[in-house]
Amino acid sequence: MRHSFHVRVGPVSFRIGSAWPEPIRQLRALYRDYPQDVGVPDFTVRLAPSRPWRRWVRPSVMIEGDYVIPDAAPLPVAHGLLAAEMGMNLQMAMGQRRFLLLHAAAVARDDRAIVMTGESGAGKSTLAALLQARGWRLMADEFVLLEPSSGLIHPFPRPVSLKNGAIDVAAAAFPDAHWGPLMRDTPKGAIRHLVPMPDGLAAGEQPARPVLLLFPRFGLAAEQRPVGAGEAFVRLTQASTNYVILGERGFAALTGLVRGVTRAAIDYPDVETAATMIEALW
């Protein structure tokens, strides 16, 4: 393709091709501190015009690649960076086979990790991002990678996709952070990508052992309850895009995870409270 960019995030390498220069320029800027990797990629993403003439006329970006969703709606070129990020997510969700992929966030201290999962909107991305100011390194905000053979979590420190109000909150917490451009009026409102703090990026290939599995819910009075292994297992199979296709490796990895960690559901009104609860559970 006319314009392209290679990058490695944790153990996964991507090749992104684009019919337009702008998304690639934005990717280069956003990922400037990541390993720029030109070896054989794990996944290819393509940003292509929906029709040949749509490269110039009301240009709109189709998200394509090794794995595609047939009916994905195109995005305007102004949101090309978002399209690239969605394309990378799509490849992971549909094509990842080396790791059990959990739709979750993870933070770590040294080599011990906390996995946080819950429905979209439960605030796990924001919580994970803000915990960086409290002595945690960010391992993942969207996809947690569990290695079946070792039971370890591998970092996948993509830029955190923050939405609407969370953008200002994080900007106040991290005045020196490296950000992507602010994209207004996306299908999910305003979106801006926050690059993880340098410690998270520096430890981008350092796995950690999961010790705590958390089901956080934001916006409620502080409360905590233990979660049974069976319930945790069911909720994590639902949060995994590749549990079934991994077969017995997935079964062993996931039963091993839920049996080997402390499991808790927490409701929290603010990050301060959540951080305190986590320190106590930890």
Binding site: V40, D42, R97, R98, L246, G247
Partner: peptide, 20 residues
Amino acid sequence: PTRVRAVLADASATALEGRR
């Protein structure tokens, strides 16, 4: 090459599960 082997190993595992 190592990278290629990893991609192919994923593909083999996928084919095996698909076959099952």
